[in-house]
Write a protein that binds this DNA or RNA. Sequence first.
DNA 1: TTGGAAAGTGTAAATTTGACACAAAGCTAT
DNA 2: ATAGCTTTGTGTCAAATTTACACTTTCCAA
Lengths: 251, 251
Amino acid sequence: MQHNPIKFNLELNPNVSVDCVIFGFDLEQLTVLLIDRGEIPSGFGPRMALPGNLIYDNENLDMAANRILDELTGLNNIYLEQVGAFGDPDRIHKESDREWLKSIRAEPEARVITVAYYSLVPISKYKPQAASFAKNADWIPVSQINELAFDHFEILQAAKDKLKQKIKIQPIGFNLLPAKFTLSQLHRLYESILDKPLDKRNFRRKIQKLNILTSLREKQRGVPHKPSLLYEFNEEKYQELTQTGFDNFGF
Amino acid sequence: MQHNPIKFNLELNPNVSVDCVIFGFDLEQLTVLLIDRGEIPSGFGPRMALPGNLIYDNENLDMAANRILDELTGLNNIYLEQVGAFGDPDRIHKESDREWLKSIRAEPEARVITVAYYSLVPISKYKPQAASFAKNADWIPVSQINELAFDHFEILQAAKDKLKQKIKIQPIGFNLLPAKFTLSQLHRLYESILDKPLDKRNFRRKIQKLNILTSLREKQRGVPHKPSLLYEFNEEKYQELTQTGFDNFGF
DNA sequence: TTGGAAAGTGTAAATTTGACACAAAGCTAT
DNA sequence: ATAGCTTTGTGTCAAATTTACACTTTCCAA
């Protein structure tokens, strides 16, 4: 479907876009999929930005977020959660930002309000797509990011906070892991999201007590140390658990 | 400041509004400030709606929410938190909804995306304002609401959930109470937000242990039973508490 | 065969939670 | 004045949870 930008009076009508914070986990640390906007004259701000696009008039907000995710990663049916809306009137102020906006067919003079989402992607399933803006996408460790274009750094911060809260309440971390994973991987994942060390034995005890993991009769292969048992997340058992009113992992 | 609606091509440019879920507490139960849209022909949907308005082009989202709150209640400096953005393309479908939109100067044919906020108001400070849309505002117990105009019921639900989560993590409940309050009132407040009974003695023990209340040397007066001691929330002590990494009340 | 590296495992002390009942204080009505 | 009503305010014990902490096992590689 084609959309042509049209001039109009902007007084009460901002552009509305959707930006996605796409989290991944490389089994070491939490990462985010960022777009490199390319060479930008010095003094014109960060090159890296969150993937995003204007919403179409026939889709709702969730659909727009899924579309962006699909175009960029080829994945659908991905865990997706809204972070919130962001939109200072002076959000866009750099010339380079205006150029960028034109490239996604937004009115460069218009105010842009953006609705941010975060999504959790099993990094192993990610394959770079052909879509133009996906060419320069890359996974960057969250801990290494200290600036982004527009207000995207603020959005990333908000997304991290949301994720941190959510993981204390729901077992969404599994969306970042391969179907079969080790307890140590899960442990590292929780540590990097909560951004604090967790005692190994206590973590294992707590997770196992919840009884939402299926232990496979299968071991890691080819690791230069004692191989770990592999586990699967068990959706049904988690459903049973929620029936009991459970809503707190106690991290 | 005057804003006149202008015809334009809507393809990529929805109206953006802000709606507020204004919570109060009448010392018995949680309430919400709703607008009665007046007589509506039968079959045209609920009369009651959340207060809201289009955003102006020179204000950010938080400012818009504060403005709506101020116009409606005369209060500012009120606890305010974003719930999120809502906006299905077919959100507006009833004739009565279109009429209502005109009255707030929105394009009745346009798609409307709304950013929802919730705020916590000490009900005792509320005085009805002269603003036109404030004429028919009223506090309605949350438990009695089972339908609202547009998608406002869904928004209310989301706001309740957010509040429930937040109060487990931060002592924001005090924003709903008068400066001096009793432990029983605080107890009732937590019960109505969490929507479950809490043991009286255990609740008191837990709250007092946190050491964020100042016990006044003052009693309730004029109550037909043993008068309660009055307490104040102590911001400084709460700040000390957060320094320790505390972020969980354990409810 | 040995060395390196991560997996996997148990206990004891401290803290927190949950369940539970009755006396004290002030108002009201007589 | 007093009897009755209503809500406040308080302690303990058992069970569950949390925290801190170190050594053996298993596989791979050299």
